[in-house]
Amino acid sequence: MLALDRVSKTYPNGVQALARFSAEISQGEILAIIGGSGCGKSTLLRAIAGLDRASSGTVTLDSEAIASPHAKIGIIFQEPRLLPWLSVADNIGFGLADLPPAERREKVARALARVGLADKAEAWPRELSGGQAQRVAIARALVPQPEVLLLDEPFSALDAFTRRDLQDHLLDLWADTRPTLILVTHDVDEAVVLADRVLVMRPRPGRLFDQIEINLGRPRDRNSPLFENFKRSVLTSLDRSLDRNVPDRDATQGPGQAMWW
């Protein structure tokens, strides 16, 4: 289980990006984080990844405190961030340097086939389309089999069609080993199609505003009325989070109580 306990972050320039953010994410859960621009979503993700340290509060994974990048936590950024001097196959195998070459090759080959890029193994990153490059990034992050995979707006630079394709693909890959996914997104559709639970954040300082459980089986039908309902409640919550006149809800309240309020 991943536990965030009152995680706060104040940047050296005085911006308080994150204030007392607490959440518990169980193993295998898919969590979406949504919120207005600048409300600290990336800051939160970077703290979980161990890339930046929280000013106060703790991140613990299975009772192990996270202060620096951890083998069980992978991250996918908004840009693919492939290493341009490595072939696609070598990019995917980047995190497997400790394995014997034969085993590495085999894992890479399997991952390549899994993301549908077996024919691109020897290509250079510059020869890939945006969607293909992001798929390589996903494979690179997944191939060391992390327990937690963080995704910071991973599909936001892609067109709507490719985005849908990759969302389905991500779910497919997730089903293999069921890591915990924490997905930051601006896309309500994406949040509802992927997540078990959506956390809504509000800015200045960034903090938790609301959470919505998405009680929908998978695969999810994007056109069903229920799906529309969940989308609407996330959108409503998002609108309220950006309205300064709405007071904070108590973060300790469960979703049921929040609805009742």
């Binding site: 890339l51 990048p69 951890h70 950024f77 961030r81 290493l83 001097w85």
Partner: peptide, 27 residues
């Protein structure tokens, strides 16, 4: 810096970071 960060997420040590990220980037 974004590519250096990739190295960090894979927990490259100082020397591995130089060999696997900095050298090829600088070449």
């Amino acid at each position: 810096r974004k590519i250096v960060e990739v190295g960090r997420t894979f927990r490259l040590s100082g020397f591995a970071m130089i060999r696997r990220i900095l050298l090829p980037a600088v070449l």
